[in-house]
Write a protein that binds this DNA or RNA. Structure first.
Lengths: 162, 162
DNA sequence: TTAAGTGCAAAATATTTGCACTAGT
DNA sequence: ACTAGTGCAAATATTTTGCACTTAA
């Protein structure tokens, strides 16, 4: 019921780099796998803490950095600038993140390829088009926005907390 | 030699919202105009401080937020998650940011339009494709990377400080 | 055994906020 | 005058780091 696949993969990768497998690292990897999409370090820490409260958040950060260097994990920046991590296993992909309701939708990279090719041809620029999430408004929120005739404001004026 | 255009525009926009024009706001707007591309709040503050050291960074943040609400300024997230601001004047645009050398290159949005249309058609998603910078490697850095046969590592291993 | 890994607390960075004072209009 | 705006300092939030202790191999 766990991810022995990733775990073994990870142990191997760690060994190659003279690193060790530890319960903390295992837990963090499992936590990553238990989320469908991108997760913040904070969320991973909470998930791990729920079982093993003594695991420190700095260990989470250190492990994520390590996993990224090993190529098992990738990170992305979402709208608010918070770093989001996910398993690299499934190959490159993208997310559409709605500014209105926060919903996320997966997106195959094949849709981005034309743009990537264009950038390469025109500018010789090798774009990493999966590094950032694409933000905007989902179908539902677009509809809601149109109702309000709210065509001008770019963001839902985030000053509200008293 | 200054930007009376923007300044007047700003004063008008401020008035419409019951806000006032102040020297600080003027200075911050000028600083924004004096940079070719995107700038961090920090950089704006430094620029302003060089002339008027008593201007506080929190004022910079508050002004930038206000200018954004007024539609005069937009922000973007670059690779490291730092928020970058720029004048909205020139209309929507994008930047290619090189991970290798940090160089920035402007990019017309027209190149992004096909993708935008595709996302709208396929998912009903109204993407804001200017909200994030596109990261990758510029022509020069691509060449350098190929030399090193460095095809596997995704990032230039950022652990170096002693 | 022994170098790698961890927890903890503190530092560094980026941004926001409460509050008393200042200054546009 | 009256309220918006500012400086300051302190609070938040996120991520990093130094160090002594623990542990995988």
């Amino acid at each position: 019921m766990s991810q022995p696949q990733s775990a073994r993969q990870m142990t191997a990768a760690l060994k190659q780099h003279g690193c060790r497998m530890t319960p903390q690292r295992q837990l963090i990897l499992n936590a990553l796998g238990s989320f469908p999409g991108h997760v913040s370090a904070e969320a991973i820490h909470q998930q791990v803490s729920s079982e093993f409260p003594q695991v420190n958040i700095s260990t989470v950060y250190r492990t994520l950095e390590l996993l990224e260097d090993l190529g098992l994990v990738t990170h992305t920046h979402f709208d608010d600038g918070v770093t989001q991590y996910h398993l690299a296993e499934a190959g490159p992909h993208q997310h559409l993140v709605c500014r209105g309701c926060g919903s996320q939708q997966e997106l195959g990279v094949e849709l981005l390829e034309p743009l990537g090719q264009l950038l390469r041809q025109r500018y010789g620029f090798a774009a990493d088009l999966t590094h950032f999430a694409i933000v905007g408004l989902c179908r539902t929120c677009v509809a809601r926005t149109v109702y309000h005739g709210d065509t001008e404001s770019r963001s839902p004026l985030r000053k509200s907390s008293p």
